[in-house]
Amino acid sequence: MYSILFSDAEKTYIWDGVELNLRNDGRKRNDYRPMELETDVVTHASGSARLRLANTDILVGVKAEIDVPYPEAPNVGKIEFFVDCSANATPAFEGRGGEDLANEISSALLKAYDVLPLNNLCIVPGFSCWKLYVDILILECGGNLYDSVSLAVKSALYNTRIPNVKGTYIDGTNVDLQLSDDLFECWKLDVSKAPCFVTLCKIGEYLVVDPTVEEEACSTASIVVSVGENGSITGIFKIGEGSFHQNAICDAIKLAGTIGNELNKTLKLALEKEENLGIRRERYGFLK
Rank of each mutant, 00 (worst) to 15 (best):
M1H: 09
M1N: 11
Y2N: 06
A9L: 10
E10Q: 10
K11F: 08
T12L: 15
Y13K: 11
K28Y: 06
R29C: 08
D31A: 11
R33T: 05
E36I: 15
E36V: 15
D40S: 07
V41Q: 00
T43A: 09
A45S: 07
R52D: 07
D57P: 01
L59M: 09
G61C: 04
A64H: 01
A73D: 12
G77F: 09
I79T: 06
F82C: 10
V83R: 06
V83D: 10
N88K: 08
N88T: 14
T90P: 05
A92P: 09
E94H: 11
G98R: 01
A102H: 01
K111W: 00
D114M: 05
D114A: 06
L116T: 07
L116Q: 06
N120K: 15
N120I: 15
N120T: 14
I123L: 08
K131D: 03
L137G: 02
S148C: 14
S150K: 00
S150E: 03
A152I: 07
K154F: 01
K154S: 04
K154T: 09
A156I: 07
Y158N: 12
N159Q: 02
N159C: 13
R161K: 13
I162Q: 04
P163F: 03
P163M: 05
N164P: 03
N164R: 06
K166D: 12
T168D: 03
I170R: 02
N174V: 11
V175Y: 02
L177C: 04
S180P: 01
L189I: 08
V191D: 01
V191F: 00
K193F: 04
P195I: 00
K202E: 09
V209P: 02
D210W: 00
S219F: 02
A221N: 07
A221Q: 01
V225N: 06
G228H: 03
I233H: 05
I236V: 05
F237G: 05
I239N: 05
E241H: 07
Q246T: 14
A248G: 04
C250L: 12
K254H: 13
L255N: 04
A256E: 12
E262C: 14
L269N: 08
A270L: 11
N276C: 12
N276S: 15
L277V: 10
L277C: 13
G278E: 08
I279V: 15
Y284S: 11
Y284G: 07
K288M: 05
